[in-house]
Write a protein that binds this DNA or RNA. Structure first.
Lengths: 142, 142
DNA sequence: GGCTATTTGTAGCCTAGGCTACATTTGCCT
DNA sequence: AGGCAAATGTAGCCTAGGCTACAAATAGCC
């Protein structure tokens, strides 16, 4: 059973949650900049379906934590650290997404679930998923 | 790419988070009652590594939401709805855990990761995992 | 029956992450 | 240049989930 030593597991889930929003935001910021040159608060508000006020304060936390830089009424820029986080986060997201597809999850569901799952996947599990996708796409689907 | 129609995905992740703690708590309460007959706030505080005050208030929310019943200085009881949630949550947790093992994730990591992942697994993905575990344990490990 | 340790309860504080309402700034268009 | 719409900022409020410190109840143990 998976029921022993529950102690540290929940602590890790809690700490995961603290970085989740940061990861989602830098990912979205990087995507938006790639897609349209700049990223504004209003773009994020649309993507996350929250008010611009919420975006504003989240961006404030990201700036405090060193992931983005902003100036009043100016678009949002990623710092070096922000770019790094966006890249690893995006890579992990993609692996989880491809993995779900590989085990037979429909595309739309895989897109949704990977969004929630990615933040809780340890490097070991990610490697297992990556390896699985690799062998599956080589041998599998003829 | 997994980058289109991001809109509703984040909304679902947020709503998942709202039920996460409830699921973890009823699961832990059910486990504890099975293991030692009753479940007290202090047991949960130990398991989740939080203060008893935090447990107290979380239990208050669970009671408000109809998952548990409590009386001052008395142990915690699950309602019918609480039992139902605990059962489905536990089943889902177990499937995710076995699934991670099946793709080669080490036991300890699988235990930790499944704790975070389980709350974001849709019925479709869960079914895909369950099916995978089934075929893997039939054909696989000799 | 009374003492002490454990367990619960209560008060009050904090951060994250949501919101509405209103003010201000920018940018565009004529 | 003037004016309007969109974007951003600010004030203030809410819930969830953390915490410490202190108060009260319960349970064991003499």
């Amino acid at each position: 059973m998976a029921r022993k030593q529950k102690v540290n597991r929940h602590s890790r889930v809690r700490s995961d949650h603290r970085t989740e929003l940061a990861e989602d935001y830098v990912e979205a910021i990087a995507d938006t900049i790639e897609a349209q040159g700049t990223c504004r608060a209003v773009d994020l508000a649309h993507q996350f379906q929250v008010s611009h006020v919420t975006v504003n304060r989240t961006i404030g936390r990201l700036e405090r934590d060193g992931y983005v830089t902003t100036a009043p009424y100016a678009p949002i820029e990623l710092t070096k650290e922000g770019h790094r986080l966006a890249a690893t986060s995006r890579r992990r997201h993609e692996v989880v997404y491809q993995f779900l597809l590989a085990i037979g999850v429909p595309e739309a569901t895989a897109a949704t679930d990977s969004e929630g799952i990615e933040h809780h996947v340890s490097p070991e599990s990610l490697e297992a998923m990556r390896a699985f996708v690799e062998t599956a796409t080589v041998s599998g689907k003829p």
